[in-house]
Design a protein around this nucleic acid. Structure first.
Lengths: 241, 241
DNA sequence: ACAAAAGTGTTGCACGTACACCCATGT
DNA sequence: ACATGGGTGTACGTGCAACACTTTTGT
C-alpha cells in the first residue's frame, strides 16, 4: 500500500562572489544584467539552478555562462532566504565564493544573454547592486577576512610567482592594517611551504626581489594530520558576521 | 513598458541539528517521522518552509512544531542540494544547528502530526537516518568541534551553574581528547568571564566543587573590540570538512 | 580510614612583537 | 650619486605544555 506522493520542483538561485587581485587592489567580479528583473543593474553573477544539477554543479555552470570562467574552486558561503528578497516571489539563493588569479583571465565573455558583460571592480568602488547582493557581498568579504588568518587563501589571488612584498601587501589590503616586514617574512618562510625560485622580478627600477611560489603539495603535507583540535578553548574572536 | 514577469514559488526545507549534554554524554535531538516519505524513520527535525516566512523564522517554527522547543538560538550551517537527496523531487534543504541546555526541557512534545515523538540520543548511538540526514549531522558535528576552539559554545550546553570539572569533561568529549586539569583551569579562569559563585556542588560523596557561572556580559565586553584581525596569517589548520 | 575528586605552581619552550640599518639595482 | 624598495637579527614578553602532590568531604 504505497502512497503516491506529489512531486516537487524547486525554484532557487545561486550567486557567486568572486574575488581577484590586480594592480594592487582587491576586486570582485560583477555582471551587468541584461534581463528583468533588475535589467541594466550591476549584480553578482547568479542565476537559477536547474532541476538536474546539484547546487555545487549549478554554481559552476552559472559562473561559466555569465563570465566565461571555468572550473573555479568555489565554496558555499551562506543561504539567503528573506521573504521579499526577489521581486518575482519566493526565491532563496545560495551564495558561493572563490578567490582567483585575475592575470591571464582577460576574456570575461558571457556565454548567455543574461549578462551584457562581466567585469572586475575594486571592492572600494562597489556600485549599488541588484537584489540583496550588496549584503551577500559584505558577508563574503567579512568571511574571507577571517579566513585569511588560518587558510592559505591569499595564494589563490596572486600570480603563480610572486615576491614576498606582494604577498605582504595583499595581506595588508585584506586585513586593512600594516604588518611588520621582518616578522611577516620570518613567519611566512618558517612555514616551509613557500618555494624560493632562482628567478627574480623583472622590469623594476630598483633592486629586483626574489620570486616565490606557493607549494600546495608541501602545504598539504605539513597540515594534513593537523585537524588542530589541539589547543584549549581559546575563547577569543567571534567568527561569524 | 513594464514586462509582466512570472511568479515563482519555492519548495525547500530546513533541518535542525540540535546538540545537548546530559548524563555526561553529548546528544542530539531526533524525531520519529509520522509521514511519508521515510515514515517511521528517525530523522533530524525538519520540514518545508512556508512561502511567507524567512528561512530563519521557518527554522524556528519547524523546530517548535516538531519538538516543542521554542526560541532556540539556531544558526545556519550549510545548504544541501544534491539532485536526488529527496525522493519526491528537487528539494534542497538548509541545515541549522544549535547547542542547548537539556535540563528542564523535559517535555519534548511534537505539536504537529509530522513527528510521532522527539527524543535525545547520544551522538555515539546514532541510528540510520532518513534522507541525507546522517551527512548533515556529521557536517554539523565537525563544525561545532572546530568552533569550540574559538567560541564559548560549551556554556550553552551546560546547566547555568557548573563546576570546572564538568566544563572540562564537556570539552574533552567534544574534542575527543584528554586535557590537563591544571592548564585547563588556569586558562579558563584567566579569561575572566567565569563568575565564581559562593555555592558549592551538592549531593556528591566526595569533596564538593565550587560552582561557576558563565558571564556573557563580561565575555562580550572582553571580546567586543576583538575582531581579531590581528595575528599574522597563521596558515595552520583547515577549517572546513 | 579510605575512596574520590578538588584544588594548586613552576619551568621550559615556541611564538609573536617591536624595532633600524645596510644592500642591490636601475636611472 | 641617488632613489627605491630588498633584505636581514635580536631581545623581550606571553602563553601553552608538561608534570604530582595535598586537601576536603562523605561513607
Amino acid at each position: 500500500m504505497e502512497t503516491v506522493l506529489p512531486k516537487f520542483d524547486s525554484v532557487f538561485s545561486i550567486d557567486c562572489v568572486i574575488f581577484g587581485f590586480e594592480a594592487g587592489e582587491l576586486k570582485i567580479l560583477l555582471i551587468e544584467r541584461n534581463e528583468e528583473p533588475f535589467k541594466d543593474w550591476y549584480a553578482l553573477p547568479g542565476n537559477f539552478v536547474g532541476q538536474n544539477e546539484s547546487i555545487d554543479d549549478g554554481a559552476k555552470r552559472i559562473l561559466y555562462e555569465l563570465t566565461g570562467l571555468r572550473n573555479m574552486p568555489i565554496k558555499q558561503l551562506h543561504t539567503f532566504g528573506e521573504v521579499n528578497r526577489h521581486p518575482q516571489g519566493r526565491v532563496i539563493t545560495v551564495a558561493y565564493f572563490a578567490l582567483i588569479r585575475i592575470s591571464g583571465q582577460k576574456d570575461l565573455t558571457p556565454i548567455t544573454q543574461y549578462a551584457r558583460k562581466a567585469f572586475w571592480i575594486p571592492v572600494n568602488e562597489m556600485p549599488k547592486l541588484a537584489f540583496d547582493h550588496t549584503e551577500i557581498f559584505r558577508s563574503a568579504f567579512s568571511k574571507i577576512r577571517k579566513r585569511l588568518n588560518y587558510q592559505p587563501i591569499a595564494f589563490d589571488l596572486l600570480p603563480e610567482k610572486f615576491t614576498l612584498t606582494q604577498l605582504q601587501s595583499l595581506y595588508e589590503i585584506i586585513l586593512n592594517k600594516k604588518l611588520d616586514k621582518r616578522n611577516f617574512r620570518k613567519k611566512m618562510l618558517s612555514y616551509g611551504f613557500l618555494k624560493e625560485l632562482s628567478e627574480k622580478q623583472k622590469g623594476v627600477s630598483y633592486r629586483a626581489a626574489k620570486l616565490y611560489k606557493f607549494d600546495r603539495r608541501k602545504y598539504n603535507k605539513i597540515f594534513q594530520n593537523d585537524l588542530n583540535m589541539d589547543a584549549l578553548p581559546a575563547a577569543a574572536a567571534s567568527e561569524e558576521k
